[in-house]
C-alpha cells in the first residue's frame, strides 16, 4: 500500500497541475492569462512523460564515452556502458524536447494574435470583445 502511494503520488500531483492549467484556460476570459494556462497545462503534460521515463537509481542517458566506436573512454578503461550502470529512458525526453518547441511556437502565434486583438478591439477580455461584436451585429441588422 505504501509502495503504491509512493509509486503513484507524483501522477496525482501532475494530474492536479494539469487540471490547474486546464482550469485557467477555460475559466478566465483574459486572453493572456488563457495562454499562461495553456503553458501550465502543457508543461504539466511534459512532467507526465518525464516522470514516466525515470528509472530508479538511474542516471541521465548519456554515456561516458568518446564518440569513437572502440572501447576507449574518458577514464581510459574499457567499460561496457550497459554494464553496472542504470540509465533512465531517453525516448520520452526526445518526445518532450519536440513538444516544448511546438508549445513555444503555438504560444508565439497566440501572443501575436493577442497583440493584434488588443489593437483592433482595445481589450483583451473575451467578454468585452464578444460584446463589441454583438453590438455591431445588432446595429447592422
Amino acid at each position: 500500500m505504501v509502495d503504491f502511494i509512493v509509486g503513484h503520488f507524483n501522477y496525482w500531483v501532475i494530474i492536479t497541475l494539469m487540471m490547474t492549467g486546464l482550469y485557467v484556460i477555460i475559466s478566465t476570459g483574459n486572453l493572456v492569462k488563457k495562454l499562461v494556462g495553456l503553458g501550465v497545462f502543457q508543461t504539466s503534460v511534459f512532467q507526465l512523460y518525464i516522470t514516466l521515463s525515470k528509472v530508479a537509481g538511474g542516471r541521465p542517458p548519456i554515456f561516458d564515452k568518446l564518440p569513437g566506436y572502440g572501447t576507449e573512454t574518458k577514464y581510459g578503461a574499457a567499460v561496457d556502458p550497459l554494464l553496472g550502470v542504470i540509465y533512465s529512458n531517453p525516448l520520452p525526453h526526445v518526445l518532450i524536447l519536440t513538444a516544448i518547441v511546438v508549445g513555444v511556437s503555438t504560444l508565439a502565434v497566440g501572443l501575436a494574435l493577442v497583440v493584434r486583438i488588443r489593437e483592433a478591439y482595445g481589450s483583451i477580455e473575451g467578454d468585452d470583445i464578444d460584446e463589441a461584436e454583438y453590438k455591431i451585429e445588432i446595429a447592422s441588422s
Binding site: M18, F41, V45, L113, R116, I117, Y121, E133
Partner: peptide, 22 residues
C-alpha cells in the same frame, strides 16, 4: 473578427492537441 476566430481556434486546437498528447 478573423483575429478572434483564429485565437479561439488556437486555444481549442491546442487543448485538442494536448489531449491527444496525453
Amino acid at each position: 473578427q478573423a483575429l478572434t476566430a483564429s485565437f479561439n481556434y488556437l486555444i481549442l486546437g491546442t487543448i485538442g492537441a494536448t489531449f491527444f498528447v496525453i
